[in-house]
Simulated assay, not measured.
Amino acid sequence: MLEGIIIKGIGGFYYVKVENKVYECRARGLFRKNKTIPLTGDRVLIRVNEEDNTGYVEQILDRITELKRPPVSNVNQAIIVFAAQKPEPNLWLLDRFLLLASYQELDVIICINKYDLDTDGKADEIYNIYHNAGYKIVKTSCETKQGIDEIKDLLKDKITVFAGPSGVGKSTLLNNIQSNLKLQTGDISHKTSRGKHTTRHVELIELDLGGWVVDTPGFSTLDIDFLNEKELQYYFIEIFDKSNSCRFSGCSHHKEPGCAVKEAVDNGEISKLRYENYLSMLQEIKDIRRY
């Protein structure tokens, strides 16, 4: 058997790259019986028919990580892409992406794309909020080529998922990183100011510089029903760091007295926007648990 990596799956077929060849494979019925679905990014063992370059996936090797949305495995890091403008940045959605990536124990980088459109300083404000919270941030522009080399360095020898809403320029950014990709790019809908979906399936793309990236469909929402109320604070870096100074060990940082997090919000140490997003998610989790 040969060992390879699934680079995409479409309609029950899995395309497995082994060195310089790609084999079109079906999955063994055993996987369906065990309710196991091969994922893009899986390292697999395949049995090959050399006459027509087809084969069967015989075994899925142990996964390092597994994401639900997008469905992909063995990712090392997530680059979460948002636009400075067009579309308008949605920090509530950004915080959900950050939460999901942190929950999966991925290294997280925030990419603020289309930085050349930041004429009113809002993108700089966002940069300061998340830089102060402890996140790594890269400013990029495909027009001016700002930050492209920095992104390339981050991608080298990693498996990276690009996530973020539609229209923020993920595909254009990847095309600038490697010009022969020629990924389809979408315009912004003038009616809704949102991006039009261009990526139709999850695909692993090999980079000439070394490493892989996952180009994924855009998202508008992410479920957090896997969390409980106490766990939520772990995924807000600055809130969790400050929680050690709260009067009560079980503080949820909402209505409790002597809360160091609320004090930090009041004195500007923690972003009010981030804190409000935390409270919104806290209420969402409570509502889910109630039902």
Rank of each mutant, 00 (worst) to 15 (best):
D153I: 13
N176T: 05
S171M: 03
D225W: 05
P257C: 15
N49R: 13
L173Q: 02
C25Y: 13
F219H: 05
I109Y: 03
T221I: 03
E203L: 08
G12L: 11
P89M: 11
K35C: 01
V108Y: 10
V44S: 02
D116Q: 11
L209K: 04
S245K: 15
T172H: 02
S102W: 12
A27I: 05
K182R: 09
I110L: 10
S220T: 06
D118I: 14
P165F: 12
I10L: 09
L282F: 12
Y23A: 10
L227P: 03
P87Q: 04
M1S: 11
K114R: 09
T216W: 00
K230R: 15
V213Q: 01
E3I: 11
F226L: 09
G147R: 05
H197W: 04
I80L: 07
I129E: 06
H190V: 15
A163F: 03
L155P: 03
N20R: 07
D120Q: 12
K230S: 12
R200G: 07
V75D: 00
L91Q: 11
I285S: 09
N90Q: 06
L209Y: 01
A264E: 07
A123Y: 08
T144H: 14
L209A: 01
H253R: 14
F82L: 14
G11N: 14
K139G: 04
G41I: 02
N128R: 13
S171Q: 01
K35F: 08
D157E: 13
D52N: 15
L232S: 07
E150M: 14
H197Q: 10
Y130Q: 06
L117C: 10
K272N: 11
L232A: 07
R26P: 03
Y15M: 12
V161M: 12
H254K: 13
F97S: 02
N267V: 07
G55F: 06
K158Y: 12
Q178D: 01
I188R: 01
V16G: 06
K139F: 04
G211I: 00
S73I: 00
H190C: 02
I80M: 02
T221A: 13
G9D: 05
L67H: 05
C259L: 10
N132S: 13
V57L: 07
C25T: 14
H253A: 12
E50N: 09
I237P: 09
K272P: 00
Y275F: 13
